[in-house]
């Protein structure tokens, strides 16, 4: 069984996000980038399926600039067998990413696609669902447990107020939630080996995907800065301020 995993390059979760002075976008200059945490969980799940003898090959796929190779190498160091980069300098849009994945899925004859449920930069939560629609295959989103049984996969989904388990016929699309697993650390010898694992580069054009721009980013704004508190001298003053200034009573 072949598994495709999605790997997105995003701003590191430890880094404080800054907005550019002209509000055109988030300022990514000189910031640390990393593999999207949900994608890391997807990679881990795929590797565990391979270690369990269920998967035969794990292929990490990313869409974006050539810098994404860094995150693909991380996936290779963690245990993916090979990687494919769909190189594009344009802003990455969910629908285009889903179309690229659909093509790669077809080319590779993949049986299972594991994606992060969303990326921590744009928080769209769309690619998995779009990919299922484009390929007309079943989807199990927000997975906290994945069990492959023969030609189907049982996915336990985290839903409001509980868990729902669905059984999907393969090929299928699974998106990961936080509790699915705890990703491992890459080992030094594996990081060295990862440098020699195959990483192929392709493009939207090579895949026959028209990467039309559907979304235009108008403006990014930082949350309003919190105003400092004031000390009040008496209960009466507090009531007066709540009435006249905060206007909450």
């Amino acid at each position: 069984m072949k598994i495709l995993v999605g790997v997105k390059r995003v701003i590191d979760y430890n880094v404080k996000v800054r907005v550019k002075a002209d509000n055109s976008d988030v300022d990514l200059s000189n910031t640390k980038m990393a593999i999207n945490p949900f994608c890391e969980i997807a990679v881990e799940e795929a590797i565990r399926l391979k270690e369990a003898g269920i998967a035969s090959e794990v292929i990490a796929v990313s869409v974006g600039t050539s810098a994404c190779q860094e995150q693909l190498r991380t996936a290779l160091a963690l245990g993916a067998d090979r990687a494919i980069l769909v190189e594009s300098d344009a802003a990455v849009e969910p629908l285009n990413v889903a179309k690229a994945f659909a093509k790669v899925m077809e080319q590779e004859q993949a049986d299972l696609v594991i994606l992060g449920k969303q990326s921590i930069d744009s928080d769209n939560n769309q690619v998995g669902q779009m990919l299922a629609a484009l390929t007309k295959r079943p989807q199990g989103t927000f997975a906290s447990k994945v069990d492959v049984e023969g030609q189907s996969v049982a996915v336990t989904r985290e839903i409001d107020g509980g868990l729902r388990t669905v059984k999907l016929a393969l090929p299928a699309i699974v998106t990961t939630d936080l509790r699915l697993n705890e990703p491992r650390f890459a080992k030094l010898p594996d990081i060295m080996k990862a440098k020699r694992k195959p990483l192929d580069t392709t493009s939207f054009a090579d895949l026959g995907v028209k990467a039309k721009q559907h979304i235009q980013l108008d403006k990014v704004e930082a949350p309003a800065a919190r105003q400092g508190g004031v000390k009040v001298a008496s209960v009466d003053e507090l009531i007066q301020k709540l009435k006249d200034e905060a206007k909450v009573i």
Binding site: E182, P183, R184, F185, K187, L188, P189
Partner: peptide
């Protein structure tokens, strides 16, 4: 922990 990895 479950993620334990011995130093090298």
């Amino acid at each position: 922990l479950s993620t334990y990895m011995e130093g090298m």
